[in-house]
Amino acid sequence: MTFHKEDSYKKIALFYFAYRSLTEKPDQVAEKYGIQRVHHRILFFIAQIPGVSVNQLLTVLEVTKQSLNLPLRQLKDKGYIVTISPEEDKRIKQHYLTDSGKDLLKELSKVQIDQMEEIFSILGKDYEEKWTTVMEEYAKIRPGVKLLNFNLE
């Protein structure tokens, strides 16, 4: 199946607007807490991969160490995450959400979950499965997805 250029541009535009809709309200919540979208992403992936190391976070987020350092430190300073070094190798720093970090992540993610549930309840399970398949195809080439134990092969 081929797409006409106009159809492709429309799909790209719709993807952009959908992303904006998915991130708008969590960004507003984050602002109340003096954090930004990058902090939300860090919290989200620490929750998905408890004990995640800095190198693993760099892989998942596909950012530089310099761009991760400040928001990670800010989340620690605000008490949303803790860093623990395992006894067997003190060089490794594993990151975990605190209870307040878990609460904040729930608040940040609730609107996104509600949006998805509402849309898929209207469209039906078949659309949800197809949407998930499309997202899996996009995601399977990203290096960090392997850390999430998704079976995308």
Rank of each mutant, 00 (worst) to 15 (best):
E136H: 12
K78F: 06
Y138D: 03
L108T: 04
L105V: 02
L57C: 02
K78Q: 11
L75I: 00
L57E: 00
K140D: 01
L152H: 13
D27S: 15
S67W: 10
S53W: 01
E88A: 09
E128D: 07
E24S: 15
D27P: 02
N149H: 12
S53R: 03
Y96C: 00
D114T: 11
K93I: 00
L58P: 01
V38D: 13
K125E: 14
Y19T: 07
E107M: 12
M116F: 12
G34E: 12
W131D: 02
L70D: 14
A30K: 08
S67L: 02
P143G: 07
V29I: 14
Y33L: 03
N69S: 07
K140P: 04
I84A: 03
Q66F: 05
S85G: 01
F120S: 07
K106A: 11
L72W: 05
Y16P: 02
K106Y: 15
R73F: 05
D114P: 07
L14R: 08
K125M: 11
I113L: 13
Q94W: 00
V145K: 15
D27R: 15
V63I: 12
R142D: 11
I42C: 00
E107D: 12
Y33W: 11
L152I: 01
N151E: 10
G51W: 01
K78A: 06
E6R: 09
F17L: 13
I122A: 13
H39P: 01
G101D: 05
K11I: 05
Q115D: 09
V134Y: 05
K10M: 05
E6M: 04
P71F: 09
A18V: 10
Q112A: 02
Q94P: 00
D27H: 11
K10L: 08
